[in-house]
Design a binder for these strands. Sequence first.
RNA 1: GGCCCCGUAGCUCAGCUGGAUAGAGCAACGGACUUCUAAUCCGUCGGUCGGAGGUUCGAAUCCUCCCGGGGUCGCCA
Length: 596
Amino acid sequence: MRAGALQGEGRRIPMNLFDDVAHKVNAALGALAEEGVLPAAVDTANVKVEPPRDEAHGEVSTNAAMVLAKQAKMPPCELAEKIAEKLRADADLTDVAVAGPGFINMRLAQPFWNRLLSAVLALGDAYGCSDMGGGEKVNVEYVSANPTGPLHVGHTRGAVFGDALANLLEETGFDVTREYYINDAGAQVQALARSVYLRYCEALGLKIEKIPEGLYPGEYLKPLGQALVMEHHYALLKMEEEQWLPIVRDFAIDMMMVMIRDDLAALGITHEVFFSERTLHESGAIEETIREMEQQGLIYTGQLPPPKGKPPEDWEPRDQLLFRSTDFGDDIDRPLKKSDGSYTYFAADVAYIREKLRRGHMQLVYVLGADHGGYVKRLQAANAALSGGKARLIARLCQLVKLYRGGEPVKMSKRAGEFITMREVVDEVGADVVRFMMLTRSNDAPLDFDFEKVKEQSRDNPVFYVQYAHARIASVFRNAAQELPENLLQADDDSIRWELLEDAAEHTLMRRVGEYPRMLAAAARAHEPHRVAFYLMDLAGDFHALWNKGKENPQLRFILPDDPERTQARLGLLRAVRQVLRNGLRILGVAPVEEM
RNA sequence: GGCCCCGUAGCUCAGCUGGAUAGAGCAACGGACUUCUAAUCCGUCGGUCGGAGGUUCGAAUCCUCCCGGGGUCGCCA
């Protein structure tokens, strides 16, 4: 049997009940292989153990028989029966049955659930965490906005996504570095410097005309002009541009980065590394990279064909220094130098990839806007060439966020430098709301963000819905502290009689709690933090449903003064639910609230 | 024209990398409050999964070709 092929046979995820069952299934298959029912070298790579969609099919289900039928040279149902026979011997499993085209459905015996719920309480914040990543070094680069202006809504989604993804990977056992690439080389920061210089002149009382085309007209640069006056007085006025430009540029970049970091902090985002593009130029890293690539035959001088479809009017063939990215899956080879001899942005990026690889990162994650989709293949080509195919480069593209206010689109004029900043959004609705809302869609689906709707306290608002579940649980515990004797509240977790959780809605909630580690692992593998948000909405929904059953049937209330043992079991379940809500929200970077 | 993403209920979207009769919310309709917070819950209605082929025990999911929407396309970052 191929070792580690079956899910759950590699790294075990603590208290992932599906992993535990997978382990049992694998043992059963091993036994059948020994008996000669299955070939000794059976390939179990496609065998899965998962929750069935329909509760009627049990709590756990496996497709083992259907996947292995061909290898066993036996009809699926017949093989399923043989596997089921082995599984029935396990005391943790009940109702083992063959169904449909050959699924094996089963339920988990009470001791199994007892262990799970006790473990959730014992593990606390660690429930759901795993060592799946095995400490692999992952670099997550996100935001990386040009230091030429404040962060706007467009950056917000990538910022939240990247941060939540980093949290997710961290909690699933990866060694994560959060990184921000500062584009502080090139024409844009020169334009920034000239814009700030104009504001400096303005602050000195000189009359400035309209900010010229190509420069940054935003009001936000005025304080920088004033600050320059405080520091340099009239000195910069007497200088030639080539003298003042580096001074003003460096000053402006520093100031903008202070502002950007401050805005990110307001959203609860901190990067461990801020990496400057300019250092790649100044340290000679780009030259070194190109030299190395030349030695490996990855670079040549040649001409590119004109773009198909609509050839640009000023097109003329030109010899260029090109990276053979087509050898690594790209559509066209990519230039590393501009016609003036300076390096392209891409050349710096290649050197940057080399730098990240040198630091030992095996996974390079790029969180980008959807408009950078065309850039991904060349990044991946560069990574493949430089890492020898050993490291992975994963790009996640975030689609646009459309702003609304009460159903009406919010108008923005980019040309006039008017845009809604990230800070404005955070200040108006709060960091928690922004963060949660940004993750209520898959990253590659466009997102509508309505200022009014996200402040509503209703079912429509997923942030509220999840927070409300947490607050209601907190409220139960406040009441319990009033109504129940102290010895009941302080009882030992190990003495909880979990089997007293008998209602179907309690079981639904219990199962959902049990799914959390599996969901987390899958979300991390897919680099999809939005799954955590969707899971939390489902968990909250299950909880609200149980809550309401207690209204219709007083016997289902959480606190039953006449039945201390059942009360204890129900409060135990609520503690487990509260714990999972907290753990999930922590990954999203959202604080749970105690009351609303 | 090339490449990338999307197309699932009237609307907004999930769908756990191939599983069983495709799911939520909103909207529409009908119910549940002397409350452990009704800021919630329950039920009903609603889908040729853009279209056509293919792969196999099995496809919304994988492959090919179309249709429609968005992004992007040598020296900007």
